[in-house]
Design a binder for these strands. Structure first.
Length: 258
DNA sequence: ATGGCTTCATAGTGAAGA
């Protein structure tokens, strides 16, 4: 089973690249963030024609998430239960016995911002929910744009980023809280290139200079992690004309039949 | 190493992203 996540920064603008990615990688599930598309405008027909069954939760201008699935997703849910959030940031479904949760964790803007408080609050709600979900679904994958670089090696200039949003201590602690639930960062199960990132600022020639952060992740429950065969970042998608500022992350898992 | 992109909503600028 191949699962992937990609913050596309507008599905409308990136649709051709999404189709290209689906054709090239043929993932069983692709999690999308920042679709910035209302559900009535979701490009259902073209993605269905490409062999995928999408489920989605979007809104105008901001946020928006989707799961593009080869097999029909079961028990689809939207948002975090009991957490009243008008921002569309979570969609989950069960595909081939694997619970796939797609998240677009808030950016936070800056540590002084009210949006940062919202981010930390949001992460606390996510953690509480994940705890229950892991009891329910031993085969669970949490994919998405976390807007957190968990370690120094995930940041091109840790000194500069120290204490700043995306790399502040409370955010890293929230990430570790997810690891403490038993989730595993699939990317670090394998040898990886030095200075491997998943996001580069559009400004300042960020990509060409590899001034990036690794903030898009695929976390796996223990049962999936032990069967994970690879995890990599598709830098080539960031090198294209008119790219998203994020690159996709892909993991392969060998699913044993029960 | 941040003002210096990109997208969206909108009709000339402003918000937001990270």
């Amino acid at each position: 089973m191949k699962i992937a996540t990609w913050n596309v920064n507008s599905l409308k603008v990136r649709l051709e690249q999404v189709l290209e990615f689906l054709a090239a990688e043929a993932p069983d599930v692709l999690c999308l963030q920042e679709t910035k598309t209302e559900d009535v405008n979701f490009p259902l027909a073209v993605l269905t024609a490409a062999g995928y069954q999408p489920v989605y939760s979007g809104q105008k201008t901001y946020n928006g998430v989707a799961l593009l699935c080869r097999a029909k997703p079961e028990d689809v849910s939207v948002g975090i239960p009991d957490f009243d959030d008008p921002q569309k940031r979570v969609i989950a479904g069960t595909v081939s016995g694997v619970r796939v949760i797609c998240v677009y964790i808030p950016n936070g803007e800056s540590v002084e911002s009210d949006k940062y408080k919202y981010k930390l609050d949001w992460l606390a709600w996510l953690n509480g929910w994940l705890k229950k979900e892991l009891n329910k679904y031993p085969r669970l994958a949490l994919l998405g744009d976390y807007n957190i670089a968990p370690e120094e090696r995930d940041v091109h200039d840790p000194k500069f980023w120290e204490g700043k949003v995306l790399f502040s201590e409370p955010e890293k602690a929230a990430f570790r809280d997810m690891i403490a639930l038993g989730l595993v960062d699939s990317f670090r199960l394998f040898d990886q290139p030095e200075k491997a990132y998943s996001w580069w600022d559009y400004r300042m020639n960020g990509f060409k200079r590899n001034l990036g952060l690794r903030i898009d992740h695929i976390l796996l429950s223990a049962e999936l992690a032990k069967n994970c065969k690879s995890c990599s970042i598709s830098r080539d998608m960031r090198a294209k004309e008119r790219p998203s500022d994020h690159a996709p992350v892909i993991a392969e898992i060998q699913i044993e039949e029960i």
